[in-house]
Design a protein around this nucleic acid. Sequence first.
DNA 1: ATAAAAAAGGATATAAACTGTCTTTTTAGG
DNA 2: CCTAAAAAGACAGTTTATATCCTTTTTTAT
Lengths: 135, 135
Amino acid sequence: MMELTRKGEYAIRGIVYLAGRPLDKVCLLSDIAAAVDVPPTFLAKIFQQFSKIGLVKSFRGTGGGFMLGRPPEKITLLEVVEAVEGPIVPNRCVAKIPDCERSNSCNVHPVWKRVQDEVRGALEAVTLKELVSEE
Amino acid sequence: MMELTRKGEYAIRGIVYLAGRPLDKVCLLSDIAAAVDVPPTFLAKIFQQFSKIGLVKSFRGTGGGFMLGRPPEKITLLEVVEAVEGPIVPNRCVAKIPDCERSNSCNVHPVWKRVQDEVRGALEAVTLKELVSEE
DNA sequence: ATAAAAAAGGATATAAACTGTCTTTTTAGG
DNA sequence: CCTAAAAAGACAGTTTATATCCTTTTTTAT
């Protein structure tokens, strides 16, 4: 239960790798994909999503590729995960548009709210800077 | 992401309802299903899983049905959820048999471990007793 | 201008998981 | 023996996940 999908896993690997490269250098998608061992076509879709919300900057044409959209310490793991997986919603009742009417009377509801807050908190507390392995 | 399935939702509804009934009374599955608005055949599968691990006691034949296997204050929400959804595993790397070898060197790994611990903790802190609505 | 490089976008395909239903079997009571 | 009820197993439709492929657009270099 509550499992990150491949897409999420790949997304993290890809952007963490990018965060570990020289920040002013454009990286080829194919290079990133090879480095983190992810199908290039799949990673392309992921980076398109990143690009749309500014998590990465993309450059087309010869010499093109990707750069981090912001310094690594300004990008949280929560942003990365939600970019590709959507919002953290442990149960429908705590979604933005909940599809459960009894939320008010339901005693389980606050539990899911708490789970949601804790997960979001844990992911928001971590930035890409802390995730790049320094050696 | 991280969403409880219908099965999980139904499981909670069903067993919380049972916990709110007189504890020594056997309840018909069909009655429970009707009360909590869940397809009876689906709920049957769920209660079979409950029964196997002793969360509920089942009685076959005429006059049969289900009873809570333990007092409500001795059953946690975590048990109920894991009974039908399997273990709480936000990422494969924190599963019992992880399929990621780099767990040692990976900086993301401790984050998922933390998420796992917090979710489990939040669900374990709540018992069925607290979930039955008293009015 | 043209060709080549690279990302963007769209369509498609396969497999797995989710959400059930149906049928048969087992157990218990009257 | 007959009926009530859960257990067990098979099956089916839908949705989501996991990609891949192809075409288009943008940019750069020749």
